[in-house]
């Protein structure tokens, strides 16, 4: 598993927990609402962090690829 797949898994878990939290909140069950809401918070934070990590990694990969192309052109000269 890498960070992008972990981010997707965390997002799915957050999306699963959020409706349960809303449902328990509407039903007036504060304990279950707290449990599901905190699960949503954890997975949402984890998702945001991993997506941020993934996006910056992809940017670094693009920089490396671009540099390699320019190096290759320089060698041909």
């Amino acid at each position: 598993m890498n960070a992008s797949r972990a981010a997707l898994a965390a997002l799915v878990l957050a999306a699963t927990a959020a409706p349960a939290a809303a449902e328990d909140g509407a039903a007036g069950d504060p304990h279950r609402w707290a449990l599901w809401t905190s699960c949503t918070v954890v997975f949402a934070l984890l998702t945001a962090f991993l997506v941020w990590t993934h996006r910056r990694t992809q940017a670094d990969v693009r920089r490396l690829e671009s540099a390699e192309e320019r190096l290759s052109r320089l060698e041909k000269k």
């Binding site: 990590t53 910056r56 670094d60 490396l64 540099a67 390699e68 320019r70 190096l71 320089l74 000269k77």
Partner: peptide, 30 residues
């Protein structure tokens, strides 16, 4: 495990910086 993902990204960024610096030096030489 999460730390390791972050660390790997930073290592990749450092590698990119190294390559870019070398590229800039080569371009100046050319």
């Amino acid at each position: 495990l999460v730390y390791r993902w972050v660390h790997d990204r930073l290592a990749l960024a450092a590698r990119a910086e190294t390559v870019m610096a070398r590229l800039r030096r080569l371009e100046e030489d050319v």
